[in-house]
Design a protein around this nucleic acid. Structure first.
Ligand SMILES: NC(=O)c1ccc[n+]([C@@H]2O[C@H](COP(=O)([O-])OP(=O)(O)OC[C@H]3O[C@@H](n4cnc5c(N)ncnc54)[C@H](O)[C@@H]3O)[C@@H](O)[C@H]2O)c1
Ligand SMILES: NC(=O)c1ccc[n+]([C@@H]2O[C@H](COP(=O)([O-])OP(=O)(O)OC[C@H]3O[C@@H](n4cnc5c(N)ncnc54)[C@H](O)[C@@H]3O)[C@@H](O)[C@H]2O)c1
Lengths: 239, 239
DNA sequence: GTGACTTTGTGCATTCGTTCACAAGGAAGG
DNA sequence: CCTTCCTTGTGAACGAATGCACAAAGTCAC
């Protein structure tokens, strides 16, 4: 509804029809893009919603509805032009530019993230590695030098860093987040198993490994219960 | 209301009212549990829905509704007993037992995962590290010896492994997944940026870093557009 | 050009998830 | 015991996401 008002206001062009894409759709667009990239590598020129949907494991109706939020880029009776659709999704996601990110906390996880080579091809460039510990500062990781966390404000400004990945211990992550926000960064991907408080307007997404495993465990247990006898269920009731 | 009918049928006990917890709720339970664990460490005995909700960043109404699917464990006018609620959530998630997991692919990411010490306290134990490359097999990582991936069927059986984490290169991940499923494992947490096909009944969850960053990028760009001038928006429209 | 065929884009129904708002339940103090 | 106060638990309203089904729009063979 906010989006609706927008359309009325911005009569300039149809750039605005790319607005108000539902969250659920946004979270699937990267997957479609990934699949399309694979197709491009294979030299496939055209793909139907049915094929693409099965590649990423969603229903074709869902895929078509998702794509319809971006515009009407398919050809009826034929399918989608792989290159063009890929371009349109990149455009919608804002990946026609490169996003500069910083990684904070060069421990086990931070090093792995720094070494990850899946970023470059997907519109993201690691522009800074930061840590506060003297023994790590100055070392080379994946071709970059680790810099002092205290320099973040300057670094963020100079290199236009828009997103920070936090791989710091849970205990210090809130204060790190505060400093990151103070440095003018407004998007955070947090790997520490705590939920952080940030001012309004700052986006946070969490990746928590143990949470993921626990969700899997829940469903495994459900399945086990389904085939289990009543005795088992009864035992669980006792205090 | 479904819960009500159940009670009528299963006079035996209320173990069954823990059934049919919505997915959205299940995915939040681990976060509640994490917050409760923090409270236990702090020696807090009782907590209101308002307090707990603000710790994890959800609304108190949502929290209460979530908890209501597990049963009625609060005390009106007072709040929830921290220990008891923690226990009930653990029970619902199936964390009163320990879940044995295996990590496949001992590269950058696999090593970090193996070194992660956040599992033990959360009902998960890493019981095997696997790789197919001779130069890694036999080495020690985080106190465990890397074993040949080919031995997975035996290892899975002997150690009761229920969940596998895949940290293998995208290219080989589908075949690794096939082997994992063939070894009788029915839950997979996949870190490779591809979607894998598995037989029905096998659960897969994906953790894709680049996807997460791209979602953040999308919202950053949206915000930028909001404050941008019409010229900028217009330029992006042109094919 | 025409007709058969294929696949998109979308209105509509349904299911799932969130928020609201308040009655019911219990504690605590007089 | 009764009253006041607080917080839970939950119907009911709302909103978001999904699935269904088909008209519309195109291709291609002839
Ligand atoms: N290792 C994993 O696979 C894994 C998986 C999921 C989540 N995590 C989480 O990621 C985080 C990092 O894990 P890790 O295993 O890499 O830990 P680690 O202890 O190996 O590394 C933490 C790094 O952060 C740095 N650091 C600490 N305080 C800092 C500060 N205030 N400012 C800047 N840098 C600071 C330390 O110097 C260290 O280099 C933890 O919160 C952990 O729970 C790790
Ligand atoms: N490094 C990261 O931070 C990061 C982040 C997100 C996702 N990922 C993804 O995780 C995966 C692993 O990343 P990485 O950086 O650790 O890669 P890596 O190349 O360092 O490690 C891959 C490991 O898998 C092993 N392997 C390969 N084929 C195998 C097979 N068939 N059976 C058993 N083992 C096999 C290799 O021997 C190697 O040890 C990749 O798919 C990557 O895209 C990595």
């Amino acid at each position: 509804m906010v989006g609706r008002e927008w359309k009325a206001v911005w009569v300039v062009g149809n750039a605005t029809e790319r607005r108000d894409i539902p969250d659920a759709t946004v979270s699937r667009l990267p997957e479609y893009l990934r699949a399309l990239t694979t197709l491009i590598e294979q030299g496939v020129a055209s793909v139907s919603s049915e094929e693409l949907a099965s590649m990423v494991g969603v229903s074709s109706a869902k895929l078509r509805k998702d794509l319809s939020y971006l515009g009407s880029y398919g050809v009826r009776g034929v399918g989608y032009d792989v290159d063009h659709l890929s371009y349109q999704i990149s455009l919608a996601l804002g990946l026609t530019r490169t996003w500069a990110i910083a990684i904070v906390g060069m421990g086990n996880l931070g090093r792995a993230l720094a070494a990850y080579n899946g970023f470059a091809s997907r519109g993201v460039e690691v522009m800074a590695l930061l840590d506060h510990h003297p023994s790590v500062i100055g070392t080379q990781i994946a071709g970059l030098t680790v810099e002092p966390f205290a320099d973040l404000p300057r670094i963020a400004r100079e290199r236009g860093i828009a997103i920070a990945l936090l791989a710091t211990p849970a205990r210090s992550t809130q204060e790190v987040a505060d400093a990151v926000v103070a440095a003018g960064i407004t998007a955070i991907l947090n790997f520490a198993p705590i939920s952080i408080d940030v001012p309004g307007g700052v986006q946070v997404r969490n990746v928590d490994l143990a949470t993921e495993v626990q969700i899997l465990a829940f469903h495994q247990q459900q399945r086990a219960r389904g085939s289990a006898d009543a005795a088992g269920a009864l035992a669980e009731v006792l205090p």
